Amino acid sequence: MGRVIVAHEKKIEIKSLLENGFGQQYIARQLNVSQKCVFDVAQKLKQNLPLFNSVGQGRKKATTKAEDQYLLKIMKQDRTKSSQMLAAEWNSSNGKQLCASTVRRRLINMGYKSYTTKRKPLRTPDQIKQRLKFANDHKHWLKEWQNIIWSDEAHFECVGCMSGGARGPLVTYTGRLNGPAYVKVIEEALPMFIENTFDAPNNNWAYMHDNAPAHRSKYTAD
């Protein structure tokens, strides 16, 4: 472990307490510093030495500026890599050894932040049962799939649909996609898409959704 650098302001506090007659152990406990630190300040006071830290005092950086730039380069090649993976790649191509925490500190000092990938919720047993039933009920379908209108929405506020080889319009919306907003999007886009995609006598089309909250809300069902 490298030497801990004590701030000059902390040393001034130690000096003040020493001059007021407090013991070194008491000062160390009160200011959360080592007894060695308090002892060193006391010795400097006896010898009339300045309390400032010496130039170059403390632990040296494990990497140079050029090595930090190389670390930045390999991070940008794949931003999904963890700090452990970046450290392993850096160590394999360099004689020095870096730990993951050092990698994180270097990247944070260069203005980057770390993120944890958001985990999607797993399917519930009921959802698994419903999907299996749907698959078994429709496993013999062939041409029937041409009459299904598939839809989905994206997190960048747009909804689209398709059926067979036909693609529907991409409809944008603002804010949260709740029941009323979802119905409004469907009313704007679906009738024209159905008219342009299916022949007039064909009333066998079906609209498919993915059971998202907006799709099964009470407002949508009504």
Rank of each mutant, 00 (worst) to 15 (best):
A221T: 13
N94S: 12
Q47Y: 02
E188Q: 13
L72T: 02
W90D: 01
W150R: 02
K118F: 03
W205V: 05
R59Q: 09
Q97P: 07
L31H: 06
A66N: 07
K46E: 09
A166Y: 08
L17N: 05
A154E: 01
K81G: 03
N109L: 15
L45P: 02
R105P: 07
E188G: 02
T220W: 14
M192R: 09
K113P: 00
W205I: 04
K15H: 03
K118L: 09
S83V: 15
Y182I: 02
C37V: 15
G175L: 04
G168N: 03
A88I: 01
A28F: 10
G2N: 05
F39W: 12
W145H: 01
D78F: 04
P125Y: 06
A214I: 04
E13R: 05
H209I: 14
K81D: 02
A189K: 04
G175Q: 07
S16D: 10
D137N: 14
Q25C: 10
Q24D: 10
E9Q: 07
G111A: 05
H155F: 04
S34Y: 12
N91K: 12
I5K: 14
L49M: 09
Q97W: 15
K143Q: 02
Q77K: 08
V159A: 02
A189I: 12
D210P: 04
L122S: 01
C158V: 06
I12H: 02
R167E: 02
N203F: 12
L51I: 02
E19Q: 15
L51G: 01
P50V: 03
